[in-house]
Write a protein that binds this DNA or RNA. Structure first.
Lengths: 108, 108
DNA sequence: TTGTAATATCGCAATATTACGATAAAAAAT
DNA sequence: ATTTTTTATCGTAATATTGCGATATTACAA
C-alpha cells in the first residue's frame, strides 16, 4: 500500500487533483508567477531567478507541462514557456464553486 | 536532499502551495465535493460514501483541516465538517489572476 | 566540424505521502 | 457500569516526490 487509489475516483476528481498537485510546490508557484509577471518566459531566466539547480527547475517545468499548466515552444536555442489558461480555468472554476458555497444550517 | 526547500520561497508562495497540496488528491477533491453537495457534513457520511478505510479518511480530513480548507465542529457524538471559504478564496484569487493572463508577444 | 550554450534525462539519497489494521478516546445508548 | 458508536492516532509497508550532480541532447556559432 502507499499508492494513491486513483481508480476509485472519477476522471474529473483525478484531473482536478492532478492540476492542484502540479501547483503544490512553492517552486512551481514561483514559476507560474514569473510567467505571469515577466515578458520573457525563457527557461534560462527561470533558472536564474530561482534558488534551485537547473536540473531541479527542469523537473518542475516538466511537471507543470505534464499537468497542462504551461506549454513550451522552441525559440531558437532555448525554450519559451507560457501559461495554459484553459487548464488553470478548470481548477479555478471548481474553486469558485466551492467558495460560493453556503453551509447547511445543521452545523458550522 | 529530498526535502522541499520551502525556506527559499516567500510566505505567500508557500501558503498557496500548501492549499494546492491539500487539494492534490482525488479523495480530498471528493470530500470537498461532498461538503458542497450534501446537507449533512458528518464525518461518518464521508466514510460511507468514499471507498477508503475510516483511518484513511480521517487522515485526509486532518490534512484538509490543517490547510484551513475545512473546519470541524462537534455535533453530539459525531463531528460535522464544513468548507472554509476564506482559504479557498486565497487560491481561487491567485488562479483567477493567472487565467486572465495574456501571453507576451515574444512566443507561444 | 568543433565548440559552446540551453534544456532534458538519469541515477541516487533523503524525505514525504498514502493506505490500512489495530488501538485509543470520548460521548451516547443500553 | 457496560456496551456501542464515532472519530482520531499509531505503527508500518508501499510508493512518490524532491533535489542535485553527472551526463545526454539539441541547436546555434565559429
Amino acid at each position: 500500500m502507499g499508492a494513491s487509489k486513483s481508480s476509485a475516483f472519477t476522471k474529473r476528481q483525478n484531473q482536478l487533483a492532478l492540476i492542484a498537485k502540479a501547483l503544490a510546490h512553492p517552486a512551481r508557484i514561483a514559476i507560474v508567477e514569473l510567467l505571469l509577471k515577466k515578458q520573457s518566459c525563457v527557461c534560462g531566466t527561470i533558472v536564474d531567478e530561482l534558488p534551485l539547480a537547473q536540473a531541479t527547475i527542469s523537473q518542475h517545468l516538466k511537471e507543470l507541462k505534464a499537468a497542462g499548466i504551461i506549454k513550451g515552444s522552441i525559440a531558437g536555442n532555448s525554450i519559451c514557456y507560457c501559461l495554459e489558461q484553459k487548464t488553470i480555468q478548470t481548477l479555478s472554476d471548481f474553486l469558485n464553486q466551492l467558495s460560493t458555497y453556503t453551509s447547511p444550517s445543521k452545523c458550522c
